[in-house]
């Protein structure tokens, strides 16, 4: 059961590292879920990312010039607690600083990101041993557009855009399974951002986002069944185009983002674990219409047993 908690930590990190596209992305909707035999958990994570390249509309990769530095640092607190034996609830509070300097110009902004709350249900409990059946948790997440977005940004380089800009509802499934020293996890979710209207003296602009989906598949091993775990993972995400109506009618472009990552985790004791993750969005060259990051994240998680 402790190993399962370990795995939950790994799934959670993707709510951090899959975020980031300054333009149209910001895609992960994977919540903090209690996956082990715990009654509550508190996770603090620190993420530092650097935009390395752009994936233009239509694919390919275009590296940034050396005099163009865009970075982000995020501190995020995720808390989750059991509501009953199988039901749980959680909240995610991110704070982000984004900065960019290019040539002689620079801009920086700090503030709250998009806050989300979630409800989880242990749909596939692992009360009895099965060599093949995974543990499964279904979840429902609501994201609030507290971080501003490219639709609201006022600063140079849109550095004050820290979120997607839409209320969003997401439903998904987390599956976890261990075999001896090996483990695997799979997260899949689909989300629907809600339309919004921007009004001013020029008229009304209706923004109509489409469906989105994201996932994460990970594989890990704990050598000698010890306290360390090594993991690799792959996380695709997809956002349908945002259409505009009213003031100006048009259709944006879809966003595809693929993230590859490797992770080293350490379980200090049964209630405390930490993790260091390196991710790269330029390795799997299937992204388009988004900025591509490399990032390092450190997480520390405290759990309280039932």
């Amino acid at each position: 059961m402790i190993r399962i908690s370990f795995l939950g930590l790994f799934a959670l990190i993707f709510s951090q590292i899959s975020e980031a596209a300054p333009c149209c992305g910001g895609t992960a909707n994977i919540p903090s879920l209690i996956s082990g035999d715990d009654s509550a958990q508190l996770t603090t994570s620190i993420l530092s990312s650097q935009v390395i390249a752009e994936a233009p509309v239509g694919g390919g990769i275009k590296y940034r010039k050396s005099n163009d530095n865009e970075s982000a640092r995020t501190i995020k607190i995720d808390a989750a607690t059991l509501l009953s034996d199988r039901w749980q609830a959680g909240i995610s509070l991110p704070m982000t600083q984004r900065s960019r300097n290019r040539g002689s110009s620079e801009a920086s902004a700090t503030g709250l990101g998009d806050i989300s709350v979630n409800l989880g249900f242990e749909a596939l409990p692992d009360w009895t041993y099965s060599p093949w059946r995974p543990k499964g948790i279904v979840f429902l997440t609501t994201t609030f557009p507290t971080g501003g977005s490219i639709y609201d940004a006022k600063e140079l380089f849109r550095v004050d855009s820290r979120g997607r800009g839409f209320y969003s509802i997401s439903a998904g499934l987390l599956l976890l399974k261990t075999w001896g020293a090996w483990d695997t996890s799979l997260v899949m979710e689909a989300h629907r951002p809600l339309s919004r209207t921007i009004k001013n003296e020029l008229g009304e602009l209706n923004l109509k986002p489409g469906w989105g989906t994201s996932g994460n598949f990970s594989l890990g091993v704990s050598p000698l069944n010890g306290d360390f775990r090594l993991g690799i993972s792959m996380a695709p995400s997809f956002e349908a185009p945002v259409a505009t109506e009213g003031l100006v009618s048009g259709q944006g472009e879809k966003v595809n983002l693929w993230t590859a990552a490797t992770q080293l985790s350490y379980m200090a004791n049964e209630n405390l674990s930490m993790s260091l993750t390196y991710s790269d969005q330029t390795l799997i060259r299937a992204s388009d219409n988004t900025a591509l990051n490399r990032s390092v994240a450190f997480l520390i998680q405290k759990r309280w047993e039932r």
Partner: peptide, 17 residues
């Protein structure tokens, strides 16, 4: 008529006033 101006980024539908 009232004169206005705005810019629109085609990739994402974002409009800046």
């Amino acid at each position: 008529a009232q004169v206005g101006a705005f810019i629109r980024m085609t990739c994402c539908g974002s409009v800046f006033f």
